[in-house]
Amino acid sequence: MSNIFNFTPTVLKNLFHKPVTKNYPAEPAQYPERSRGHIEIDIDECISCGMCVRSCPTGCLAVDRNEGTWTINRFDCIACGYCTLKCPKKCLHLTPGYQTPGPQKKEAVYQKSPEVLEAERKKAAEAAAKAAAAKAAAAAKAAAAKAAAEQAQPAAESAAAAKE
């Protein structure tokens, strides 16, 4: 019967030591630096490329290029961190602090600052103008080529007729 008090020393030790648990709501929870809590974005760095949207396993992200917004449904996000790997500008980060519960699923919308958005729009407009110019030039070239071909065709036809 010597095998019945094996756990007693542990119990006594636990009884006279201070608790290992934290007095949580009174004492704040401590997260390590690497904790995968939630996704943060440096919205002004974002180039609205949409890589994060395409790579997200749960599909909780949305990007609107025209409005300059980045939307995340934090209740669907599983904090896997795949978007932070895929982001070409590395403007997405995983930071400590978990999503708090709520009565309904909400989306968090991040809006680019007006200056950045304006600059981007200007750039896009310039690029579009350039592209349009290039397109117009290409179209003109194609039209010229077509006209030339059309001119050549009747000549060939008449030549053929002459032969007959």
Binding site: P32, S35, L94
Partner: peptide, 21 residues
């Protein structure tokens, strides 16, 4: 585990070709 990977039970440190952290 949380200190080294950032997650308590879901580590999310693997990727095809190696590890992330």
């Amino acid at each position: 585990i949380e200190l080294s990977t950032g997650g308590r039970v879901i580590f999310s440190v693997n990727k095809v070709g190696g590890v992330i952290k």
